[in-house]
């Protein structure tokens, strides 16, 4: 029962000992003790995460509804066919994509700028670092409420500041205007997601070898050249990982916009998750909502494939 037995594939530890029955079993799967360690976490994951997820996927092919007495029936692709003709759904997806792409892109650009600054030896850096973490710690509901106060048409600080600077004449209804609601909500999304991206990029920057930068500087490379030839290649893997994750998180996001606008005005900020939530828990259309969930996964999968493949190709060339 030695815990420290080297794993079967460990290399460089001399010749492998002759295989006993237990070693063979360990090579295939796991011994009893390891199962004992894994099961407490595996069972809840299987029962409450893997299982429901598979069930949820299967619901997309049924006519499951809330509070129905007759048994649910298998309807094949009917839900997906309905989705194809649902203009509200397409509109919601368009909004979801605009939201996810804009928030992810702005988050990345702003976070990279902030991370580069925080990586410099500036005064008040500790203060900026601390402050930059605050949005991350805040509940999304509070972030939403806070920005409602900022955007408030009559008593909000944004209108007050802009009119003092004579940039606007009348108070603007940021969250109630058809054309401004989505950009206003995107700004909040960027604010809320900035810290996490900054922290990850900063960690990446701190791993860039200092000697390399110094050598490039001695060779007469300017700031921009040093960035493109030394810094960027070093942080690229981190950039790809955090951007892909941010896109997924943003596309699936719910709470922030739910609190800010509830999808309004006129559905202008109704992200796919808000739409699916209404469908499932306001109208009780479980099957249809599950089909929307499937469509969302498809979008994410397509995005990831395009995004990662391009990156991989760049890497290869």
């Amino acid at each position: 029962m030695s815990v420290a037995a080297p794993p079967p594939k460990a290399a460089g530890r001399g010749t492998p000992p002759p295989r006993t029955a237990r070693a063979r079993k360990a090579a295939l799967g796991l011994d009893g003790g390891t199962w004992f360690l894994l099961l407490p976490a595996l069972i809840p994951i299987l029962v409450l995460s893997v299982g429901p997820l598979l069930y949820g996927v299967s619901l997309a092919f049924t006519d499951a509804q809330a509070g129905r007495t007759e048994p649910t029936e298998f309807v094949g692709l009917a839900n997906l066919a309905d989705l194809r003709h649902d203009t509200l759904f397409w509109e919601s997806f368009r909004i979801g994509l605009v939201w996810a792409v804009s928030v992810t892109a702005l988050q990345f650009v702003l976070a990279l700028g902030l991370a580069l600054l925080l990586n410099q030896n500036l005064r008040f850096r500790w203060f900026a670092r601390t402050l930059a973490l605050v949005p991350w710690a805040m509940p999304e509901v509070v972030v939403g409420i806070m920005w409602r106060l900022v955007y408030h048409q009559d008593a909000g600080i944004l209108n007050e500041t802009l009119s003092r600077l004579h940039l606007i004449d009348d108070n603007v209804g940021w969250l109630t205007s058809l054309s401004l609601a989505l950009p206003a909500v995107i700004a909040v999304g960027v604010w809320a997601g900035l810290p996490q991206t900054t922290v990850v990029l900063l960690a990446g920057l701190q791993n860039v070898p200092y000697e390399l930068k110094e050598a490039a500087a001695l060779d007469g490379a300017g700031l921009w050249r040093r960035f493109t030839t030394v810094t960027w290649p070093a942080i690229k893997p981190v950039v790809i990982a955090i951007t892909a994750l941010n896109f997924i998180w943003n596309f699936n996001s719910f709470s922030l916009v739910f609190v800010l606008t509830q999808g309004g005005p006129g559905g202008e900020t109704r992200l796919p998750m808000l739409f699916a939530y209404e469908e499932a828990f306001a109208y009780g259309q479980y099957g249809y909502a599950a089909a929307m969930g499937l469509a969302m996964i498809a979008v994410i999968a397509v995005f990831l494939t395009l995004f990662l493949r391009r990156r991989l190709k760049e890497e290869a060339s």
Binding site: S49, L59, A280
Partner: peptide
């Protein structure tokens, strides 16, 4: 693998069955 994949799924697909 599951830890990573589970990050990808929209909550709707989990919350309805749950």
């Amino acid at each position: 693998g599951w830890i990573l994949v589970s990050q990808m799924f929209p909550f709707v697909l989990i919350i309805i069955p749950l």
